Amino acid sequence: MVSQVVWAQVRSKAGRLVERPVRELRGERLEEYEAVWQPPRYQGRRAIATWWRPADRARHVGCAHLGALGAAVSLEADRDVVAFASWPMRLHWADDAGGYVPDFFVRLADGRVRLLVCRPAGGSPQRWEAAAELLEAAGKQADWQVHVHEGTADPVVFSNLQRLSRWRHTRLADADTARVLRKVFAEPQPLAVGVRESGLPELPTVAKAHHLIWTRKLLIDWSSPYMPHRSLVWAPEGVV
Results as ranks from 00 to 15, higher is better:
residue 197 E to S: 15
residue 169 H to F: 15
residue 239 V to A: 12
residue 44 G to V: 00
residue 108 L to H: 12
residue 183 K to Q: 15
residue 189 Q to V: 08
residue 232 L to W: 03
residue 66 L to D: 01
residue 215 T to L: 13
residue 216 R to F: 12
residue 137 A to M: 05
residue 10 V to F: 06
residue 87 W to R: 08
residue 80 D to Y: 07
residue 11 R to Y: 08
residue 95 D to V: 08
residue 86 S to F: 01
residue 94 A to F: 08
residue 194 G to N: 06
residue 182 R to S: 12
residue 51 W to I: 01
residue 138 A to C: 05
residue 171 R to T: 12
residue 240 V to L: 07
residue 27 G to N: 04
residue 117 V to E: 14
residue 226 Y to M: 06
residue 113 V to L: 07
residue 152 T to V: 11
residue 160 N to F: 00
residue 66 L to P: 02
residue 126 Q to W: 13
residue 20 R to C: 11
residue 150 E to R: 13
residue 168 R to K: 14
residue 68 A to S: 03
residue 177 T to V: 14
residue 63 C to P: 00
residue 154 D to M: 01
residue 62 G to D: 00
residue 87 W to P: 02
residue 122 G to I: 04
residue 89 M to F: 07
residue 205 T to N: 09
residue 172 L to W: 10
residue 192 A to F: 13
residue 90 R to V: 04
residue 125 P to V: 05
residue 77 A to K: 01
residue 215 T to N: 14
residue 230 R to W: 08
residue 113 V to N: 07
residue 1 M to H: 14
residue 88 P to C: 06
residue 229 H to Y: 12
residue 134 L to P: 03
residue 190 P to F: 08
residue 160 N to S: 00
residue 127 R to Y: 08
residue 2 V to Q: 15
residue 53 R to K: 10
residue 61 V to L: 01
residue 108 L to E: 12
residue 1 M to D: 12
residue 223 S to F: 09
residue 237 E to H: 07
residue 96 D to T: 11
residue 27 G to R: 05
residue 54 P to E: 00
residue 80 D to Q: 11
residue 237 E to C: 06
residue 69 L to C: 06
residue 107 R to G: 07
residue 197 E to L: 15
residue 30 L to V: 02
residue 101 V to S: 06
residue 156 V to L: 03
residue 144 W to T: 09
residue 140 K to N: 15
residue 132 A to Y: 08
residue 226 Y to H: 05
residue 150 E to K: 12
residue 240 V to S: 10
residue 150 E to Y: 09
residue 208 K to M: 09
residue 11 R to M: 09
residue 16 R to F: 14
residue 111 G to A: 04
residue 109 A to L: 09
residue 46 R to W: 02
residue 180 V to K: 08
residue 205 T to Y: 03
residue 84 F to C: 05
residue 41 R to P: 00
residue 113 V to P: 04
residue 176 D to L: 14
residue 71 A to G: 01
residue 221 D to G: 02
residue 23 R to G: 10
residue 38 Q to C: 03
residue 54 P to G: 02
residue 15 G to V: 03
residue 146 V to Q: 07
residue 65 H to N: 07
residue 159 S to I: 01
residue 228 P to S: 08
residue 61 V to M: 02
residue 218 L to Q: 06
residue 185 F to V: 05
residue 177 T to M: 13
residue 180 V to H: 09
residue 29 R to Y: 08
residue 167 W to D: 14
residue 20 R to N: 10
residue 112 R to S: 12
residue 86 S to C: 01
residue 37 W to V: 02
residue 195 V to E: 10
residue 98 G to C: 13
residue 74 S to K: 05
residue 55 A to W: 00
residue 38 Q to Y: 04
residue 32 E to H: 04
residue 70 G to C: 03
residue 64 A to I: 01
residue 194 G to M: 09
residue 26 R to S: 13
residue 112 R to G: 11
residue 75 L to N: 01
residue 117 V to L: 13
